[in-house]
Amino acid sequence: MSSQVCAPALVIRKSCSEDVLSMLSLMRQLRYPTTQSVLKERLTMLESHPTQCSLVAELDGVVVGTIFLGMHQTHDMTDPVARITALIVDENHRRSGIGERLIDKAEAWGKERGSSELFVSIAKEEGRKYAKSFYENHGFTCFGYRLSKALL
């Protein structure tokens, strides 16, 4: 009798409001400022939003990653572009291909909505020092600077 080893099953699906605790744990790993009630409200809104969504990656039924997406269009664009507003993989599952699979799904989501580009802005913080190389290793090109100003 041979012993079989079953590989963990990775499923990527749209998030729902019931994912709030798992996603809150992920968001806290990267210090995203949110609360359970705010995140639940946001997830509920995203469940039926036509130009924004959130996906989760589940490994054997446990949420281990998430990506938030939105379509973005300005006055000088002929077509909207897809934007990653957050991508988080649980610290215990990084460098295992989950981030790449989430990006693949983000690309498909954007293409389905007429986008020919996927972009992301990353913070220049110590805790996110690997983000730039992660995105570049997955085909993203860095150009320009993002400037912001606090409105008090």
Rank of each mutant, 00 (worst) to 15 (best):
Tyr135Gln: 03
Val38Gly: 06
Lys124Thr: 11
Asn137Trp: 02
Val11His: 11
Val20Ile: 06
Ser48Gly: 11
Val20Trp: 01
Ala9Phe: 07
Met1Pro: 05
Leu43Trp: 04
Ser3Pro: 00
Leu21Cys: 11
Asp19Met: 01
Arg94Ser: 04
Ala9Ser: 13
Leu69Asp: 03
Ser115His: 04
Gly70Ser: 13
Gly144Ala: 08
Gly110Pro: 00
Phe68Asn: 05
Pro33Trp: 06
Gly65Gln: 06
Leu87Val: 10
Arg42Cys: 10
Leu151Ala: 07
Ser15Glu: 04
Val56Thr: 09
Glu41Ile: 01
Ile98Arg: 03
Asp79Met: 02
Ala150Arg: 09
Glu41Ala: 15
Glu107Ser: 08
Glu126Tyr: 05
Val56Pro: 02
Arg94Gly: 03
Ser115Glu: 03
Phe143Pro: 00
His49Ala: 15
Gly61His: 09
Leu24Cys: 09
His75Tyr: 14
Cys6Ser: 12
Ile67Lys: 01
Asp104Leu: 04
Ile98Ala: 00
Asp90Val: 00
Gly144Ser: 11
Leu147His: 13
Leu118Asp: 01
Val89Ile: 13
Ser96Thr: 10
Val62Trp: 07
Lys40Ile: 04
Ile88Cys: 12
Ile12Gln: 01
Asp19Arg: 02
Cys142Glu: 13
Ile67His: 00
Tyr130Cys: 04
Ile67Pro: 00
Ser116Phe: 08
Ile122His: 08
Met71Val: 04
Phe143Val: 10
Ala57Ser: 11
Val5Ile: 15
Asp19Val: 01
Leu30Gln: 10
Pro8Lys: 09
Met77Ser: 11
Ala57Pro: 02
Ala82Thr: 02
Met71His: 04
Glu112Leu: 12
Ser121Lys: 09
Leu39Glu: 01
Leu26His: 00
Leu21Ala: 14
Ser17Gly: 06
Val63Glu: 05
His49Ile: 04
Tyr135Asn: 01
Ala131Thr: 06
Val5Trp: 02
Ser15Cys: 13
Arg28Gln: 15
Arg95Ala: 13
His138Ala: 07
Ser133Tyr: 05
Ser148Lys: 13
Ser148Met: 09
Lys124Ala: 13
Gly110Phe: 02
His72Cys: 09
Cys53Glu: 07
Ala106Gln: 02
His138Gln: 13
Gln4Tyr: 11
Lys14Ile: 02
Lys111Leu: 12
Cys16Gln: 12
Leu147Ile: 08
Leu43Gln: 06
Arg42Asn: 12
Ser17Ile: 04
Thr51Ala: 11
Trp109His: 08
Ser54Tyr: 01
Glu125Lys: 15
Thr141Glu: 15
Asn137Glu: 14
Ile12Arg: 03
Glu100Gly: 10
Pro33Ser: 14
Glu47Thr: 12
Leu10Pro: 04
Gly127Trp: 06
Val11Cys: 12
Lys14Met: 08
His138Glu: 08
Leu30Asp: 04
Thr44Pro: 03
Val63Asn: 05
Asp19Thr: 07
Pro33Val: 12
Met45His: 12
His72Ala: 05
Phe134Pro: 08
Leu43Glu: 02
Glu126Gln: 12
Ala150Tyr: 08
Ser54Cys: 15
Ala82Arg: 03
Asn92Lys: 15
Thr78His: 12
Asp79Pro: 01
Val11Lys: 11
Gly97Ile: 04
Met71Asn: 05
Cys142Met: 09
Leu59Trp: 00
Val62Arg: 15
Gly61Ala: 10
Thr74Ala: 14
Lys105Trp: 02
Glu100Asn: 11
Ile67Tyr: 03
Thr85Gly: 14
Glu41Cys: 08
Arg13Val: 08
